[in-house]
Design a protein around this nucleic acid. Structure first.
Lengths: 219, 219, 219, 219
DNA sequence: TATGAATGAGAATTCATTCAT
DNA sequence: AATGAATGAATTCTCATTCAT
C-alpha cells in the first residue's frame, strides 16, 4: 500500500506492502491490488495474466486475491473503473460550462492522452485493455450524440462514431513511440479523430486551440 | 474437408470431414483446419480458444493438430496469412497501374471491407484478431509512405498513420451492425480513415469515386 | 443467542445474535453455536459442512469458531452430546424402576422418536449423523445385554444387536415421511426393531402398551 | 489392470498397471479405476477420499481420472453400479422361477451377504456407501411391494420397509466382526430383517431353508 | 497420417487456521 | 471475547503435449 498517494507500485511492492499492512483496511488493500494489477495488465494485456501474477505483483497470497475478486475479469473491470473514474473527474470541471460538443470531446480525449503521457503505465493499460471505462464511454456517447444532432460531425451512426474514436485512441496508445513530442503527437491524434468523425476544419482548429489553453492553465 | 472449394465449415463439419478424409492430402487437411479455425477465432478472439476447440471444430483428434501446427499462435498466423493473401491477391490487379497512393490505400481498404461484407466470418475474424496480415500491412505501409512523401496526407509519422488506419478498420469491423447498407457504411469508414490521415477532401472524393467504379466492374 | 431457551435458530439468526451478544457469556455463545450447527448437520450431514457454514449459521466470525471448537468433528461431538444428553435425561425417570429390558429399550427408543417428531430438526440430525450419542449407546448396550442374559431376545451378539437397532432407527429417521401419523410410524418402527432383535410377540405387545401409557402421562 | 479376472488391486497396483497399459482399452482402464476406487471407498467411506487418492490407488495420473469421471460422486455411482450389477446378475437365475416374495428377498439379501463374506472389501464398500445400487433397490422394492400386496409382511409402508431392510444390512456390514461363523451371522441378520418387516415365523424359516439349499448348490 | 489414451505442469479454487486489533 | 484480514496448504480442474498403435 502506498504510504504517500503518489508512490507507485514497483519492484519493492511486496516489501512495501508487508510493512504497511499493519494499518491497512480492506479498502486500501483492494486499491493496492488494483494499482498493482494495472501494471500487470499494462504489460501483458487483459488475457495473459493469471491470478498468481496479480498476487505476486501485490505481494499478497493467492488466496487473498479471492477475498477481493472472483475472477481476473472482475479485477480488470475494477481497474478500468478506477482509472477512468480518475480521468473523468478531471475532465468534468474543464467542460462544465462548455456546450460545444466538439470541444467537449477534444477536451475529454486530451485528458486521457495527457494522463497517458504523464503516466505511461496508464497509457499502456488503456491500449492494452481497449477501453476507456463505462463512465468515459457514457460521456463520450453523450457528446457524440450532441455533435450529431447539431450537425457538427458527418458520421451519423453513433455506434460507428464511437468505434472510430475509440479505435484511433486505442491503437495510437498501443503503438510504441518516443516520449518526446508526446504532446504534439496527442494533438495530432485528436485532430485525426475529429477529422475522421467529419468535424469541419475550423471547428477542429478551435477545439485544438482550446486544448492548448487548458493545458497551460492546468500546469 | 470441403469437396468444393467454397463449401464452408459448419455444423456438419465433423461428419463432412470424416467422409472426405479417405482421399485427403496433407495440404487439404491443413487448409481445412485453418478454415475451421477462422470461425473459432472469429467467435472467440485470438486468446480464448484452446487446441481442443480447433480440433473439435475441424472434427479431428487433438493430436492431429500437432501434425500441422505447434501452437495456437502458429495456427493464428497461418489463418491470418491465408485470409490476407486471399484479399491481397484480389487487390493487386486493381492497383497494378495506379500510382496515386490515396487511391491505392482506398482500394486496398475497400477490398478488405468488401470481403467482410460478403463473408461476415472474415469480418469478424479480422476485427477479432486485429490484423490485416503481414503482407497487407507491408502494402499498406508502402502506400502510406508514398502518400507521406508526396504530401498527400498530413500525418507524417508512418507508424502512427498505420495505427490510425488499422484502429479504425478493426474497431469498425468489431462493432455489430445491420447487414443492409453495409456498402455505404464501408465507404463512410474509408472516407473517415482518409480524413483521419489528413488527405484533402478532393482526393478523398476522387478515391471514393474510384472505388465505386471498381466495384461496378468487379461484380 | 436465544433469549428464551426454546427460541430456535432460524433465518433471523445473525441479527438475533448480534443484538444479544452484549450480555452473552461464553457458555451461551457456545450453546448458540451448537444449536445452529445442529441445523447445519441436519441438513448437510456430518462431512459436507465447512467451518464457514457454522459461522454463517450462527452469525459469528469464522475465527470465533476457534474460540470454542478446534475442528468440525469436535463441534459434531458436542452437538451429539448436547442432544442425546437431553433425551437421555428425559428417559431416566421413566425407566427408573423398570427392570424389563425390553420395556426399557422400547421406552428409550420411543423418547428418541418422540423428540424427533416434536423437533424434526433433531430427527434429521440423528438420521444424518447416524448416532444416538455415547451416553445413549451406553444405556442401550446395558439394556441389550440384560435382554440377552435374560433370554428376552434371540440375537446374542450384542454388537450385532446394537447395529441392527441403530440401523433401523437411523434409516427410518433418514427416510422422508409425512408428519401426520408420525406416532403410529414410530410405534411401527419400534415394533420392527424389537422383532428384529428376536423379542417374543407378547413382550413386544407389552412394551408397546407401556409406551402408549407413558406418552399419555407425558403429555 | 488385472491380467486375470480375479487379480485384485493391491499394493502393486501402480506397477501392475504400468506393465499392462500396453493393451489397455478405455473400458479396461475405466474398470480398473473403479476396482481400485472400491478399495478406497471401502476403507475411507464415500466422502473422505480426494481425487488424488483414486489416481494413486489406480496408478494413473490425476488428469487421467478426469478422462473417465468428472467428480468423485460420479466414480462412486459407477462403483456402486458395477458391484450391484454383479450381485444382481447372480441373483436373477436363482429367483427366476420363484414367486414367493419373502424367498426372493431373502435370496437377494443372501447373495449380497455371501459376496460380502467372500470379498470383505465388497462388504466394507457396501457398509461404507450405504447403498445396494439403483438396480438392487429396484428389485428389492418390487419384492417388498409384492410381499405387502400378498399380506406376507406387516409393514405396509414400502419406503419404511425398504429403509428398515437397508438400515439393518448396512449397519450389520459396517460393524466389525470375526470372519468365522460369518454365514451364521448372515443368516441371523436376514432372519432379523424378515422379522422386522413382519414376516411370519414359518415363512421366515422356509426362506432360510431355501437359502441354505441354494448355497449348497452354488458351491 | 491419424488417433485415442495418458500425462505433467500449471492455474483456479477452497478452506482450515493464525494474528493483530 | 470477538473479529476482519491474511494466508498456506490442499484440492480441483485445465490443457498443451507425448506416445504407441
Amino acid at each position: 500500500m502506498p504510504k504517500t498517494k503518489h508512490s507507485e507500485p514497483d519492484v519493492a511492492k511486496a516489501e512495501h506492502h508487508r510493512t504497511a499492512i499493519g494499518q491497512a483496511q480492506r479498502a486500501k488493500t483492494r486499491a493496492w491490488i488494483i494499482q498493482c494489477a494495472i501494471h500487470v495488465f499494462a504489460e501483458h494485456g487483459p488475457d495473459a495474466p493469471v491470478i498468481d501474477d496479480f498476487a505476486k505483483a501485490a505481494g499478497v497470497a493467492r488466496s487473498t486475491f479471492y477475498t477481493y475478486f472472483q475472477t481476473t475479469r472482475e479485477l480488470l473491470d475494477a481497474a478500468v473503473a478506477t482509472l477512468s473514474d480518475d480521468v473523468i473527474s478531471s475532465i468534468a470541471p474543464l467542460v462544465a460550462g462548455e456546450s460545444d460538443p466538439i470541444i467537449r470531446l477534444a477536451t475529454g480525449a486530451w485528458m486521457y492522452y495527457r494522463k497517458a503521457i504523464v503516466d505511461p503505465v496508464f497509457g499502456a493499460f488503456l491500449g492494452s485493455v481497449s477501453s476507456i471505462g463505462p463512465l468515459g464511454a457514457e460521456h463520450a456517447r453523450a457528446d457524440l450524440r450532441a455533435a450529431i444532432e447539431q450537425g457538427e460531425i458527418t458520421i451519423h451512426d453513433i455506434d460507428l462514431a464511437e468505434s472510430i474514436a475509440l479505435g484511433i485512441m486505442v491503437f495510437a496508445l498501443r503503438t510504441p513511440h518516443a516520449s518526446d513530442h508526446a504532446k504534439e503527437r496527442a494533438i495530432t491524434v485528436i485532430s485525426a479523430t475529429l477529422a475522421a468523425l467529419g468535424a469541419s476544419p475550423p471547428r477542429i482548429r478551435k477545439a485544438l486551440r482550446k486544448i492548448e489553453q487548458l493545458d497551460l492553465g492546468a500546469r
